[in-house]
Design a binder for these strands. Structure first.
Lengths: 217, 217
DNA sequence: ATATCAATCTATCAAATAATGGAATATTCA
DNA sequence: TGAATATTCCATTATTTGATAGATTGATAT
């Protein structure tokens, strides 16, 4: 009977190793970034606004839990998620957080932009409208991330270039902007800019990982 | 630009609150127990082999993260998961752990019983065989948990009573035993006992939560 | 009321963790 | 070969956490 306890403790301890990875805000941010495609340590550090050293330490945690893989490419070391299941779990966790934590709901409400009632908000009609060309789905992430994966029918104009490339967008149709997910504020910025410039624009909370997960069920 | 950082930090911090709950082995064990239905603090402590005080402290963590709800019933306080999504996340996390952590795979292999090639291992044919009565699906958890929810066509004989109630089981058909999930060793014990007594028996890793999640997709 | 039981709250200690700065390693480029 | 760059490794510190023990609350039963 004593041995059973020890065995069980060992098993739960192993699972807790995975949970631990998802227990630090900075690691979560790194995971979200890695959901957009493989990246170098230095890029990850910059995007997450932390030092390279700290990023390296957190990435090490991800590595010992086998949630990421590394590959040397010249001077740089590129990190990537060790499978789609990792991205899925990130989405599952933040979905549960949004479902259960009032504080998170309030914080998200605070930064949300006014929804546009003319733009379809449910997935299938948005897809339909995008296919027909009634709305432009706009990916405002860095071009690399768009190239790695993007929503169906999406066009890429990184947020940094948006102001200069406004002439590529139509004024007579709605522009639905998305970025890395609900905690990446680039799409919100994009919508605010577009509206200020007289475009019809709406915000899509989902990033590629969120989209792909909810598409299945 | 500085405000954006602060906002993002706040958001990831909130999600990390959920991750943190899943980062402690004991809490995971409590969650798995709660997946079997609502329970009192004292029951949870006993089942997880920890003191009531420690259980209470861990349950408090679950409560402040809004992952459980409590209800007073006479002298006792009953805890239950705050929705199916919590059980789902537990399953997702341990599935990912099993997928990624070699140490966990080995530990599970070590305790596994020899599979029975005559017993269907995939879900649909097991279901079919159970419906036809070719196999007996046996729930060896405490009766309460069976009453709360159980697999289709399952019969309940708690492990503690199994030895006395062997005469209720057929010798000419296979008996597939399951319990709370892959980290609950009751079903393994049951299979070993049954085989020793001359029954044809196999082990089903999934518990109710695992079954229900994988059924969907 | 008061004795009893269940559970929580508070305080405490050891262990684990996040973050930071300095040294070390590995690769490219001149 | 040596300089430059990218990243990791190591040591240190402040903070957080898990676990345990003692005091407290809240409900029931006598």
């Amino acid at each position: 009977m004593k041995g059973v306890r020890k065995t069980k403790d060992l098993l739960y301890e192993q699972v807790a190793r995975i949970g631990k990875v998802f227990s630090s805000p900075k690691r979560l941010e790194l995971i979200e970034l890695l959901c957009q495609g493989e990246k170098t340590v230095d890029t990850l550090a910059r995007e997450a606004s932390i030092s390279v050293k700290l990023a390296s330490a957190h990435l090490r945690e991800l590595r010992v839990a086998s949630l990421v893989e590394t590959e040397r490419q010249g001077k740089n070391i590129r990190y990537r998620l060790a499978g789609k299941a990792v991205a899925d779990l990130w989405v599952k966790i933040h979905n549960l957080a949004e479902d259960r934590l009032v504080e998170l709901q309030l914080a998200l409400q605070k930064i949300a932009v006014q929804p546009d009632s003319l733009v379809p908000s449910d997935r299938s009609s948005l897809l339909k409208a995008a296919r027909k060309g009634d709305v432009v789905v706009l990916d405002v992430r860095p071009a690399e991330e768009y190239l790695n994966a993007h929503l169906p029918f999406a066009r890429s104009i990184p947020l940094t270039e948006l102001r200069q490339r406004l002439d590529e967008l139509p004024k007579d149709r709605s522009i639905v902007a998305y970025c890395r997910g609900p905690y990446c504020l680039m799409a919100i910025d994009a919508v605010e800019l577009l509206r200020k410039e007289g475009f019809k624009s709406a915000h899509l909370r989902d990033g590629v990982a969120e989209w792909e997960l909810t598409e299945i069920r």
